[in-house]
Simulated assay, not measured.
Amino acid sequence: MKHTLPCLIAFLLILAIPPAWASPRVDLAVVDRASGQWIASMRHRGQQWIEGEPGRSYAIRLTNTTGRRVLVVLSVDGVNAITGETAASAQTGYVLEPWQSTQVEGWRKSMRQVARFVFTDLAHSYAARTGRPDNVGVIGVAVFEEARPSMWEPPVAYESRDDAARASSAAPAREESRAQSIGTGHGPREWSPAQRTEFVRASTTPAETTELRYDAYDALVARGVIPRPYRVASDRPRAFPAEFVPDPPGGDW
């Protein structure tokens, strides 16, 4: 049985030229809002990682690399970025038109505003402050393709957001014992308009899921994601860096 949900049309930047051999269906990237630059990802033990700097606001860039509409359910720290529910793939998400790219800049507060995504210490993350710290440190998308219209299919029953919320999803097991050091906070509100639409999913399970993990620099070094800095001999402190006593600032007494 196909399902339909009220979803949001993400606000909008249509790419002029679709990429060739598009894979995955939706490209997931994170943008540092201070610089406007994408945060480079690093691969480590089969996972993609980025460095998050506490206090920095960021946006999540979603790009539909296909010629069909797709629904993207966006999870930040295990929380649905639109509804604030503990994330499950059956929930509402953003609808992207063919070849469309958009930036999601925060937790959706209304059809007109979001609260900025901002890297912060774990205790001040939105997930931890709402009693859900177990999945802090991961951004994920579940992508659904749209059902093709068919003349013989019966009308599809409307599924409300409350109905979608009843779907459950097992929390992913934490594969590492090392503690997460930062999360995503609930920053200041800002203007970010969207509008509702409907989307009939081609299946009840996602066509694909993508995860992108993050942590602070020191934590990434400790995890082995970033190599430990190598100190050359000239960087070592010296007990006798000069032969004589230099004059103090301002000269003699």
Rank of each mutant, 00 (worst) to 15 (best):
K2C: 07
H3K: 13
C7K: 01
C7A: 13
L8W: 08
V26C: 04
S35M: 04
S41M: 03
Q48I: 00
W49F: 05
W49C: 00
I60G: 00
T63R: 11
R68Y: 07
V70Y: 00
L71T: 07
V73K: 03
G78Y: 05
N80R: 05
N80A: 11
T83S: 15
G84R: 06
T86K: 12
A90I: 03
A90F: 08
T92C: 12
E97L: 14
Q103Y: 06
R108I: 02
R108G: 02
S110C: 04
M111P: 01
V114I: 13
F117A: 03
T120C: 15
D121S: 12
A123G: 06
Y126V: 05
Y126S: 05
T130D: 02
G131W: 07
G131Q: 06
N135I: 02
I139C: 00
I139N: 00
V143N: 03
P155I: 07
Y158W: 11
E159A: 09
D162C: 08
A164K: 06
P172W: 04
P172K: 02
A173K: 07
T184A: 14
P188F: 03
E190A: 12
W191G: 01
P193H: 02
P193L: 08
A194H: 07
Q195H: 14
T197K: 10
V200L: 13
A202F: 03
S203G: 12
P206D: 05
P206H: 06
A207K: 10
T209M: 14
Y214M: 03
A216V: 02
D218H: 12
A222S: 12
A222E: 15
G224L: 04
V225A: 01
V225E: 01
R231Y: 14
S234E: 14
D235G: 07
R236I: 04
F240E: 13
P241T: 09
E243S: 12
E243C: 08
D247M: 14
P248K: 11
